[in-house]
Computed example of a mutant assay.
Amino acid sequence: MTWKSVDRTGRRLRRAATLLDHRRMNWRHVAAPRAWQAFSELRLQLRDSNLPFQFFVQHVQTPNEEVIQIRASQTHTGVFNRKNHAPWHDPPYVDTAIWESGGELVLSQSATGHVYFVATPRRSERSTPDKQELILLGPLDPTDVTASVLKKAVKRYMLLLRSTSNFGGADALAPWEWLTFQWTYTWELRERQRLIRSALRLENEWLKAMISAGLPMLLTFLLGLYFGTKSS
């Protein structure tokens, strides 16, 4: 007895393995060198721009799950936590500086060979974003990591830095940039997937209400067509 499903599975797995090898090869020879050069050039430009933090570029070469990132340094926010002591102590209080951290743009190679642009917001004890990281772009084939895609990812990263840093916020955003940030934050990849899952499971109350209202109308319409056709 022969099993056609076995032959089909073998062909498709061999094809998938070949595609995976190609993606990993394209990462090594195309995407990784291009991203490293782009992030290095970006770091130099940021260094000359007198920003309130420094930037560093790093390449973590874990086999087939590599990461290339540019990250901002920790920065003192200018505020302190003050703990008061008894009046006879000298000094009668101790100040602990509040530091701001975060702010990475990461190009991450996944186990499947696809790549993602992931960014983290700035955060401190005074500002803790709801999301620890955002998927800006992806999944992408490594050959899709072109100069224009890198510019798009960097543009969104710069917007995230300005939006979440203690040195930025609303004062560092034009009105249209604030709208762009809200759109990016709301429609981030995992958020889109969550909303889709919510809709499919009818967890969204608005969707439930729309379906509850729409089904009777649709049924009335179909019955009208049915009886109208019979009477004619």
Rank of each mutant, 00 (worst) to 15 (best):
V6Y: 09
T9Q: 14
G10K: 13
R11N: 11
R12H: 10
A17N: 08
T18Y: 08
L20E: 07
R24N: 14
N26S: 15
V30D: 09
A31P: 01
R34L: 08
W36P: 00
Q37I: 10
A38I: 02
F39S: 01
S40D: 09
E41W: 04
E41C: 10
E41I: 04
R47S: 14
D48G: 15
P52E: 03
H59F: 10
P63C: 05
N64V: 05
N64R: 14
E65F: 06
E66D: 11
V67Y: 00
Q69M: 14
R71P: 00
Q74D: 13
V79N: 11
N81I: 06
N81Y: 00
N81W: 00
N84E: 14
A86V: 11
P91V: 00
P91T: 02
P92Q: 05
P92S: 07
Y93F: 15
Y93P: 03
A97L: 02
A97E: 08
I98W: 00
W99C: 03
W99D: 04
E100F: 01
S101K: 12
S101N: 10
E104H: 09
L105W: 01
L107E: 04
S110C: 09
T112H: 07
G113S: 03
V115E: 02
F117W: 07
T120W: 00
R122A: 07
R123L: 13
T128K: 15
P129W: 01
K131H: 13
Q132P: 00
G138W: 01
G138C: 05
T143S: 13
T143N: 08
T146E: 03
A147H: 09
S148C: 02
K151D: 15
K151W: 05
K152Q: 15
K155M: 10
K155Q: 11
Y157T: 02
L160C: 10
L160P: 02
N166F: 05
F167T: 07
G168H: 01
A172I: 02
A174V: 06
P175E: 06
P175I: 06
W183H: 14
Y185E: 11
Y185T: 07
Y185F: 09
W187R: 11
R190G: 09
L195G: 09
L195F: 10
L195I: 05
E203C: 06
W206Q: 14
W206L: 14
L207P: 01
M210A: 15
I211F: 05
S212K: 12
A213G: 12
A213D: 12
L215Y: 06
P216E: 05
T220Q: 11
L222F: 08
L222W: 03
L225C: 10
S232K: 12
